[in-house]
Amino acid sequence: MNFSFLKDYHTFFLEGTKITIVLSIITIIFGVIFGIIFALMRISHNPILKSIAAAYIEFIRGTPVMVQLFIVYYGLSEIGIEFPDIYVLGSNFPDLMAGAIALSINSSAYVAEIIRAGIQAVDKGQMEAARSLGLSYSISMKNIILPQAIKNILPALGNEFIAIIKESSIVSIIGIHELMYNTDTVRGNTFIPFEPLLITAAIYFIITFTLSTIVRAFERRLKTSD
């Protein structure tokens, strides 16, 4: 095993990890926000909102993330959206935005399904009881249903976050200098094809394992209130 490349190239891994984490956090935030919106649309009684959400979710889940990434990458300028051509965290900002948007769109569909399932797993009687007291739909949803749904949602959502971190490696194909891209750079520059991959795998694992530990701790805390 030859890890001599680390001396010269460790910053590549660190910088790549930074971008991977930033990209994942953006994706998680927007994935959850839009996931909640699409989930609420999906379970609403308005047929228009319902079918828009259903179509969106089905389409996104039924097409490869790589295709979505390219569609966003080439499509943004096509529909006239231009981001300032600057460099952020060593990466081209428009590319970074394309990656973040594509990943967010992709994860929002999965998050929406997780949240919908979690909400619908709450006993129907809870909504009826809340409404029967004269509480509005939105108050009932926010204060009665969602707090209970969180317990159903959190474990699956934790898995989705982990998937987001791993899948963020796909944006290396549009040239975002995240962990996977930089790993390839190191492999190419040093002519050491194997060992850098071990470093990268270890880094991904440390990130996802940390996250799953945090999620588990949250679950335990929620359980105590049962």
Partner: peptide, 15 residues
Amino acid sequence: RQNMGMVFQNFNLFP
């Protein structure tokens, strides 16, 4: 509904 209380078979208390 605020003037009409309802009690359910399955209680439906907020857990």
